[in-house]
Simulated assay, not measured.
Amino acid sequence: MENTAPPRPPARRRQDVLDRLAREVDIWVATADADGLPCLVPLWFVWHEESIWLWTRPTNPTGRNLRDGGRARLALGHTRDVVLIDGEAETFGAREAPPAAAGAFLAKTGWDPREERAPYACFRVRPLAVQAWHEQHELKGRHLMRDGSWTV
């Protein structure tokens, strides 16, 4: 099946990414341990103050990898509508998480990990690179952010 729609202009792609970050609740989180063993899980998230905020248990593979490796690749969408985000991760204990970020997460998801009996950690992922495309015809021009700065 061939897509005959014209490619979206870069500014439209950026706005579409920002709209999805505001609207969607789940994001794929890919990390790796020190030996390169990959881990891929979906997590709830919130886009707040130009960062993606995630909560997970600090003892599970994703929590350890985010804390120890400090990097993640995040993905939204399916194979015909892709957003890939590479970023640096910063770890906060549940009580050290910035209140505004924790409040934004609660408002979006209806869940406050700080109230759980089991320990949770908060992770801020600051985007360094963002790519977005609809199918093959949009591969050209898919890089919307490089080195932490929007290119459009």
Rank of each mutant, 00 (worst) to 15 (best):
A5L: 13
A5G: 00
P6T: 11
P9H: 09
P9M: 10
A11G: 04
R12E: 15
R13H: 02
R13S: 03
Q15G: 12
Q15L: 14
Q15M: 12
D16N: 14
L18A: 03
D19C: 06
D19M: 01
R20C: 08
R20K: 15
E24Y: 07
D26W: 13
W28G: 12
A30I: 00
A32K: 05
D33A: 10
A34K: 12
A34R: 14
L37H: 15
C39G: 14
V41I: 10
L43P: 04
F45Y: 15
E49Y: 03
E49H: 13
E50R: 06
W53T: 06
L54S: 07
T56M: 04
R57K: 14
T59G: 09
T62E: 09
G63N: 11
G63H: 04
L66M: 12
R71E: 08
A72V: 00
R73E: 15
L76E: 03
H78Y: 07
H78N: 13
T79I: 15
V82C: 05
V82S: 02
V82F: 01
L84H: 11
D86L: 07
E90S: 06
T91L: 08
F92D: 01
A94T: 12
A94Y: 00
E96Q: 13
P99K: 10
A100Y: 02
A101E: 13
A101F: 10
A102V: 11
A104W: 05
L106Y: 08
A107H: 04
T109N: 01
G110R: 05
W111N: 09
W111C: 08
D112H: 03
P113D: 02
P113Y: 10
R114Q: 09
E116P: 01
E116M: 14
E116S: 12
R117S: 14
C122I: 03
F123S: 02
V125C: 00
V125L: 00
L128V: 03
A129D: 04
A129K: 11
V130D: 09
V130C: 03
A132W: 11
W133C: 05
H134Q: 15
H137P: 12
L139Q: 09
G141D: 10
G141Y: 11
R142Y: 08
R142S: 09
